[in-house]
Amino acid sequence: MNLRVVFETFKIALKDRMAYRTDFIADVLIGPLIFLVVQFLWTNIYTYNNITEINGFTLNDSISYLAVSTIVGYFVWTWVTTTVGMKIKRGDFARYVIMPINFLDYTLVELFGRKVPSMLIKAPLLFLLLKIFFNVHVADLPHFILFIGSMVFSYLLFNIFMFIMGLLTFWQESFWVFNMLGSAIIEFFSGWLLPIDFYPSFMKPIIEILPFRHIYYSPIMIFLEKYSISSSIQVLVSQFFSVIILYLLARLILRLGRAKFTSQGG
């Protein structure tokens, strides 16, 4: 993928987003207000139960976890399932069959370009506000660097998984359903809603097997310095292998879907 193409895509996405400034500003300003509910809820839970720690998490840890979870969302969430689903449903996918580019790689880079304004403007602004008003934990430099590395894998894991969900449109046209299904899986198995340490015990073995914890839980735990440097590196390695496995799976499903697409006369 040409770097100039990436840069141009970023410029267009930024221009498009900034065309509606009021909406953008409202998004940045109202976002932290939603976070108040987290603050009140968890403060009440810790105070009412007269505890300083829950499964290794202090009140500040819990609040920081949920704050960083919001930030991670700004980095990873894209409309990849609907983008892929729509291209298949409308027949635009045919273009990628005849073009000398890989549909999966192209989609990942294109969506990353669209995501950059959110990563570079919204996420730091929101983090600053959360730091000022909620005293959110800030990682030291080594953990921060590892966190950024982990976020790259997190982005890839989320988007390759949701890309696979989009590919299911080859067999069943309702891509919206797959988007919801993928979102539900990530919502409950990635540690987005809560630290996995807070989950009921019957769910933990399932989460350990699945790769989704690496989307939210792992990078956040690195940021909160809950993992040592060596453990963090191990997490990155584990994330890397999860990405490779999912990537190969996506390529396989893409090949199968492509055959199906051709057989339909698309």
Partner: peptide, 11 residues
């Protein structure tokens, strides 16, 4: 989850 990890949960 809150009630499973705390004694009294929400006030």
């Amino acid at each position: 989850s809150v009630y499973s990890i705390t004694e009294k949960g929400v006030p």
